[in-house]
Design a protein around this nucleic acid. Sequence first.
DNA 1: ATGGATTGTTCTGTAATACAGAACAGTTGC
DNA 2: GCAACTGTTCTGTATTACAGAACAATCCAT
Lengths: 246, 246
Amino acid sequence: MSPLHDGLHLLEWLADHPEPQGVTAVAGAMGWPKSRAHRVLTALKVVGYAAQDPDRRYRATPQVLRLASGVMSSHPLRALALPVLRQTTQATGCDGILSVLHGDWSLAIAVDSPAGRLSDDPFGLLGRTAHLHAAANGKVLLAWLPLVEQRDLLARLPLPRLTPRTITDRERLAEALESVRAQGYAMNDRENHPDTVTCSVPVFDGFHRCVAALGLSQRPGQVEIKAVVAVLKKASAGLTRGIAGV
Amino acid sequence: MSPLHDGLHLLEWLADHPEPQGVTAVAGAMGWPKSRAHRVLTALKVVGYAAQDPDRRYRATPQVLRLASGVMSSHPLRALALPVLRQTTQATGCDGILSVLHGDWSLAIAVDSPAGRLSDDPFGLLGRTAHLHAAANGKVLLAWLPLVEQRDLLARLPLPRLTPRTITDRERLAEALESVRAQGYAMNDRENHPDTVTCSVPVFDGFHRCVAALGLSQRPGQVEIKAVVAVLKKASAGLTRGIAGV
DNA sequence: ATGGATTGTTCTGTAATACAGAACAGTTGC
DNA sequence: GCAACTGTTCTGTATTACAGAACAATCCAT
């Protein structure tokens, strides 16, 4: 559409692909003519966000980190949540993810892995978006949304089947959200990824609005769910207190 | 210039400013007419990278993290360096920063703080650029650059005075780089920031090219320099071995 | 309350450029 | 050496980015 939209769209795609990509591959992936792909790529190269290898293929440069650093350090929730996140991951051995609602997606704004496996590079999860209907954090964000917005989203969201267990029926999703509200936490049992089970609880601000979801992910059957939920509820209460205090 | 350049430039600035900014402030900072600032801001809003508060001011959204996550998880050095970084920060209590040369700047692509003060949010340092002549990592990157490129940069770089101790003379900088090469590490004693002392060592690839600089930062006089350099040299040797092995 | 100043937004005709397709050139593989 | 790819450059047309000014909506002082 607009050059800015093209550029950012392409940059997102490029950043997600570690291997350098040629013009034709880019054009194919974006559904563009080659000339357009070439024009956008050179524009990105000029501003330093993309670079061209000697073999003429393109890749995203680490300059994209410049954009992220400001948001990372300034987001008020992040600063509060990072120590809490570390605490929960160390207590349970699960991966911890803090997500907010962004458009129609659940967006991870802070992540941590238990100390023992830092090399897993939890940063790969940072900034990832997840479908609201298939992720534990997403269900929490939906469940505590103001009713008007919740109805709107429930009617509008596409509900693609990501695994055999994904909820793809709007009525069943609405029921699930009700029970999430009732029990105070959400579960995701291999509905998003065949090998991941996640529990999630809401984090509230001073006006009892849900501003984020705090989740702990594990392989199926690794850790007792009840224990995980207990840790989460305690952490969430602390976070909510911290936010209200500010 | 081009819409893409405008948009990314503005997004960088916006991401660096935690407080939401109005159109006039943006126009002033960018040196643009108000109409142009407004146009670019609405374009960013449409693609979801900026959001408008109820009071009509604009801020960058966490969506910028989407761009960063791919690069962060895919950069081959990062995966290798993160555990090493953690090790060095815990051994010395300093902040650890791994930088690469990007254009005329030293760019931090991986950071860590000692476990005790995770709440400092070391991620604020991630993606930051530093002047090559005033940072320890920058001096290392310069010192081990192929001579042709080094001469070029030395002639072209602006050398702004950031603190009273900054090296602003090209000849003195050239001498400093020689002694950096000779002793195998670089020092930055309050030349970049009045309250920061940094040591840095080069990280080589399999062809003995310097691909990154590994630095440890501290407040002046906190930790013995010799001890820091010893830790750094050991870490760098390990990293260099790891890279060559791949 | 009523002015005056400052904010964000919309409008305008002109000038710049983004656009798709095709022609070109440079590599790779058989 | 030919063929089937690559990436890049060229072209005229249609789109839109552009700066400045007019507009509207808000704030702040008296």
